[in-house]
């Protein structure tokens, strides 16, 4: 997938969610920024380096982790692969030992690092891969679907670890994921691309505001008015609870009206699920291209 006209800057220490449907050009962009591909035109600059020159000084400051691939040696225990990475990245012995022990502790790796990587489950493998990728304390971390195929507990563990790493080392993280929970938990800023073009760059909250065409209002009470359909589109109806879909600019009027005219025990206003918002963003982006 070609990437064209996607311009963005990343600030030091921020975690940015990089979103787009399959084939949008996310992986291509990550590969370009980590030096694996050279662009036909345009300029990519990371940490003052041109990535595709693949200068060792640059490669020592970044890491690329992809969820479905192994960077560690398949037949070796992770501990041994860590030693190889120490030599490869010229990591000072004290830093190496401290980080290795810290990651083993944070990711609860325990005995896993002594078993050949081929004997580990997908989730366990991802944990040791991530530990290995961060041994040289990269300043920029490209994460391509790091939680792909993992169960929710493992996803949560990896997210916590990434946040902890970002906090301690002040590194910049560019993250792609199909799991919106990853993006919501880690990123304040998101970049949306579609067919290689940039469609949104801003806060996650702003994304919701801009692309939300409705909000939901749920009212709970015994005396709900029979003409409640007049206030909005009914999504769910129970004798004592009704959920309405309402245009964002009508939310205040509808909520106030309901509170004034009916006996209501509880009223909640919610944004639609982030997955629905993203679906809408992708759909709009698709119409534009």
């Amino acid at each position: 997938m070609a990437v064209e006209g996607a311009t963005f800057d990343l600030r030091q220490g921020e975690i940015v969610g990089f979103l787009g449907p399959n084939g949008a050009g996310k992986t291509t962009t990550l590969k370009m920024l980590s030096g694996l591909l050279f662009p036909d035109s345009g300029v990519g600059e990371v940490l003052g380096h041109v990535p595709h020159k693949r200068e060792p000084a640059f490669l020592k400051r970044i890491a690329l982790v992809t969820g479905n691939r192994n960077a560690l040696a398949w037949d070796l225990p992770a501990l041994d692969s860590f030693l190889l990475l120490k030599a490869l990245y010229d990591i000072p012995a004290a830093d190496f030992t401290r980080r290795r022990d810290q990651y083993i502790d944070l990711l609860e790796l325990g005995e896993l690092v002594t078993k050949p990587v081929r004997n580990l489950s997908l989730g366990e493998r991802m944990k040791v891969e991530l530990a290995g990728a961060l041994l040289h304390a990269p300043e920029v971390l490209f994460l391509d679907e790091p939680t792909l195929g993992l169960d929710v507990t493992m996803q949560k563990r990896l997210r916590e670890f990434i946040r902890e790493y970002n906090r301690e080392y002040g590194s910049t993280v560019l993250l792609t994921s199909h799991y919106m929970a990853d993006v919501v938990a880690l990123s304040e800023r998101v970049i949306v691309i579609h067919r290689g073009k940039l469609h949104y760059d801003g806060g996650l909250a702003g994304l919701t505001t801009r692309f939300t065409t409705f909000k939901t209002i749920t009212v709970v009470g015994d005396g709900l008015p029979p003409d409640i359909d007049a206030w909005g589109e009914v999504v769910e109806r129970f004798p004592d609870r009704v959920t309405l879909r309402v245009a964002p600019d009508q939310v205040g009027r509808v909520a106030a009206g309901l509170l004034a005219t009916a006996t209501i025990d509880d009223l909640t206003i919610e944004d639609p699920p982030i997955e629905d918002v993203i679906e809408r963003v992708f759909a709009e982006a698709g119409e534009e291209t």
Binding site: L36, R54, K60, A63, N70, Y89
Partner: peptide
């Protein structure tokens, strides 16, 4: 299709391929 990860290592690719 997994070779490209080796290219993100800070070592000459021919050397790395030869010693791994």
């Amino acid at each position: 299709g997994t070779f490209d990860l080796a290219l993100t290592r800070p070592a000459d690719s021919q050397l790395l391929v030869s010693i791994r």
